[in-house]
Amino acid sequence: MELRHLPDHEVASLAARGREPAFRELLRRYQGPVFSLVYRMVRDRATAEDLAQEAFVRAFQAIGTFDPAFKFSSWIFKIAHNHTIDHLRKRKLDTVSLEGSPYSRDDEDEARTRMEVASAGETPEQVLEARELGSRLEEAIGRLRPEYRAVVLLRHVEGYAYDEIARILDLPLGTVKTFLHRARAQLKEMLEGVLES
């Protein structure tokens, strides 16, 4: 049977037996979501790739201890989030803008690391509007505290339920609710002008 059609836990158990195609399949499934979360947390593509790759390596090295009773996606997100938060704590990098990487050494480097936001518009006006809104939203998310950023992204981008977010972030359910409410209230306040239109 093709790996593509197997559920996560079966692919993970094949990976635990050292099957490289299983590792590739898990990467194919989760590299996008994990990279997106980390990228939006650190706002630097190179750092995000490094952190996300490291999270996958750690997960794959410990794949033998993965309990199939749990979701693989929650497990990998938990590892990636913990690793990213450790990095942010070390760097004290809480908020950055979309203007470019905070690690950039010169203008060229800054331009290279500038945030790219895809748009879903059709007409040039809609493309411009979507780009502007996306940029503003991404910028607003970047200005949130890392804990708030994580809950918003896990809820709205990944679509996790509150209790699953609580498990991933190792937080009490009530704290997750509070973080979400505060984060969205702050986003709304930051985007007040955009949401009016």
């Binding site: 996008g32 979507a130 918003v152 981008v157």
Partner: peptide, 21 residues
């Protein structure tokens, strides 16, 4: 707007990088 955020793609060498590591 939050629902439209979507995923961002890593570089094409991402998976190979993980396996190399």
């Amino acid at each position: 707007d939050l629902a439209d955020l979507g995923h961002l793609s890593p570089s094409p060498q991402f998976a190979e990088g993980v396996l190399l590591r």
